[in-house]
């Protein structure tokens, strides 16, 4: 009996500690996000640093986003075609693929790519600066490390995500068109004829809003993980891993809730 009591007490303590840990973590994350928001509107505005991040997150990601988009559009067309031919609905292939790319595949896939490529880089860069006291050096000089390191990355990712998502939509649609007309021999005019009937500007907006929110989340998670690094190389490795995992997971989770919300308002 005594043993059982001790065992259950230990388990409850463990559970309590885990809950405290999660709540504490959420508090620290919220505080970090708030601080970044505060410094976003404070002078000096670091435009040069911002452009560097725009270049890294935007330009340097275009190729991988376009490549993923082309093949996603192509495979999506193939799979949809196989199903639609069974019910003789080939004419809907173009609009269905375009809708999927605009509302879901574009923002989500771009989010996953950027979380893997840029979220990881942010955590690794800032984490390395943290363990080598470069972040402390900024603070000692009277420069806000949040403003100098986090804000340019957050702004650049938030603004570049909708642009990259649009590129995903365009390249994915081209990939889809090529497979649809050249491989599956669907009439080119038929391919896009139903587009105006099924697709509205609000669908494009829905994708752009999602991409913007995902961009903000990925960057805040990546930079937060960088600032949270403790220890040396091991700590940087863990932070990089967490930035990618949480960035990707949050894109998928938030996607569901955002979809539910946007369907109601758009």
């Amino acid at each position: 009996m005594n043993f059982l009591t001790k065992y259950f007490k230990a388990q409850i303590e463990k559970l309590g500690a885990s809950i405290l840990d999660v709540v504490g973590g959420l508090g620290r994350f919220s505080n970090f996000a708030f601080l970044c928001m505060y410094w976003m509107f404070k002078r000096p505005f670091r435009t040069k640093l911002g452009w560097e991040q725009f270049y890294f997150i935007g330009n340097k990601s275009i190729f991988i986003v376009a490549l993923t988009a082309a093949f996603s559009g192509m495979v999506m067309t193939y799979q949809t075609y196989l199903g639609f031919t069974l019910i003789s609905a080939d004419g809907f292939l173009g609009p269905i693929v375009a809708l999927a790319l605009a509302k879901e595949l574009g923002p989500v896939f771009t989010g996953l790519i950027i979380a893997g490529r840029c979220g990881a880089a942010m955590a690794a860069q800032i984490g390395t600066m943290k363990v080598t006291e470069q972040v402390d050096a900024l603070e000692v000089m009277g420069i806000s490390s949040h403003q100098y390191l986090a804000v340019p990355r957050i702004l650049a990712t938030t603004f570049m995500m909708p642009i990259l998502s649009t590129i995903f939509l365009l390249v994915g649609s081209v990939g889809s068109y090529v497979v649809g007309t050249k491989v599956l021999q669907i009439d080119g005019d038929l391919y896009f004829s139903q587009l105006g009937v099924f697709m509205f500007i609000s669908d494009i907006f829905q994708g752009l809003i999602k991409a913007t929110v995902f961009g903000y989340l990925i960057a805040v998670i990546g930079t937060y993980q960088g600032f949270s690094v403790k220890g040396g190389a091991d700590g940087v490795g863990k932070a990089t891993n967490l930035a990618v995992v949480w960035g990707m997971v949050m894109v998928l989770i938030v996607d569901y809730f955002l979809t539910s919300f946007l369907v109601l308002i758009l």
Binding site: M129, E133, Q134, D136, A137, V140, M141, G142
Partner: peptide, 14 residues
């Protein structure tokens, strides 16, 4: 803090 200068243990150069 601009009145301070600090030399870190491992220099902390960028």
């Amino acid at each position: 803090r601009q009145k301070f200068g600090m030399l870190f243990q491992y220099a902390a150069l960028f």
